[in-house]
Amino acid sequence: MPDRALNRICYVEDDEDIQRIVRMSLERVGKMTVEVVGDPTMAIDAIGAFKPDLVMLDWMMPKLDGPALFRLMQQHAELKAIPVVFITAKASQRDLDELMAMGAVGTVSKPFSPKDLPGQLREIWKKLP
């Protein structure tokens, strides 16, 4: 378990409506600091600048999808260590297993409950080394 509480979250998502709901959930329910990135191609710079505790990636996005972005992060020394959680509408267990195998620390299925989302992330955070 990391020595500090989960606070700074960077969320990469192209759907503005979902961006708004996640932001509201994490800020209002979770009392966290949230940076939302709508364009995945800008994500690497944004994450580098924001220095989050944890990154949340949507899977299916135009131009650059979640897994590709994740692989890009692995190529940056300063981003490599940041834990990544995927949030996806893909329902099959095989897809979720694939993400975990890639090195994600957790997955959240869409639709999620905004009431429970911060709790879910904190659970994942607690389990990190």
Binding site: D15, D17, I18, I21, V22, M24, S25, R28, V29, M60, A89, K90, A91, K110, P111, F112, S113, P114, K115
Partner: peptide, 27 residues
Amino acid sequence: TSTLSHELRTPLTSIIGSLQLVNTGIV
């Protein structure tokens, strides 16, 4: 099937999420 699943769930995520935020009094 995969597309259908994704395309239907994405708007539902917004709808259910919004309504839950309203119904739980968070906003």
